[in-house]
Design a protein around this nucleic acid. Sequence first.
DNA 1: AGGTTATATAACTGTCAAGTTATATTGATA
DNA 2: TATCAATATAACTTGACAGTTATATAACCT
Lengths: 122, 122
Amino acid sequence: MTSSIFEVLAEPNRRRILDLLREREHSVGELVKETQLSQPGVSKHLRILREAGLVEVRQKAQKRVYHLHAEPLVEIDKWLEPYRRFWSDKLDALEKLLNEENEEEIRPLPQQRPLKKKGDFE
Amino acid sequence: MTSSIFEVLAEPNRRRILDLLREREHSVGELVKETQLSQPGVSKHLRILREAGLVEVRQKAQKRVYHLHAEPLVEIDKWLEPYRRFWSDKLDALEKLLNEENEEEIRPLPQQRPLKKKGDFE
DNA sequence: AGGTTATATAACTGTCAAGTTATATTGATA
DNA sequence: TATCAATATAACTTGACAGTTATATAACCT
């Protein structure tokens, strides 16, 4: 039901909506215009974003105005943290070296032939 | 076929595999032991991770040893970048203020009653 | 009250992803 | 060479999700 923040961000339209809300708040109707989606489609995504705590709503006359609440993105940032030290190529090389200290023989990886599929014959 | 980095990371088992590879390289068999998955299940995830450039393989006897290649995660970090300024509560409040300058009347949001569903009667 | 506007939800549909089992491929070894 | 060990792929099944249309809800306006 309520999905992980990673799953929420996996959907491109949702990232698009967040990007739009980063600039300024938008009503549902405005978001419909900015996306390729139907109105219910947008509302569905907004619900998921709301349940993830990434957006908040205000009512303004008949409209519902959504704005960004970026705080849950901190979780992504935290997950990323221990990976940061691997990013530089130089550090990569160092890692590699440390890993390979305990290794024996290393052979080049041969290209694997595709398996025989259903329709294949020879 | 090849999925976005966000989709790749949306799958919990794949994040788990990356976490394991962050500590040290692992053979497929080792990863099978560390996860709840069948061997083909692990291989399938490894293929997706490979196609995303997040892991690399070496052959060692019959084994295939996978190691982390974290570089593609930079894309996530970059995506996150423009959101960082929203994280602090203080900045949030400032944003809010700026947004609300152009607003008129603001009313509290009433709780919406659930719609009538198929099986409902009165 | 009745009509209009704006949005949320229900119900349905089709696609795809993730898991499985069975099998092919490849390297090592007896 | 026959067998074992390790892994990748094929084929299949299932469930979840994203999209749709139709409709309910709610606020505004006359």
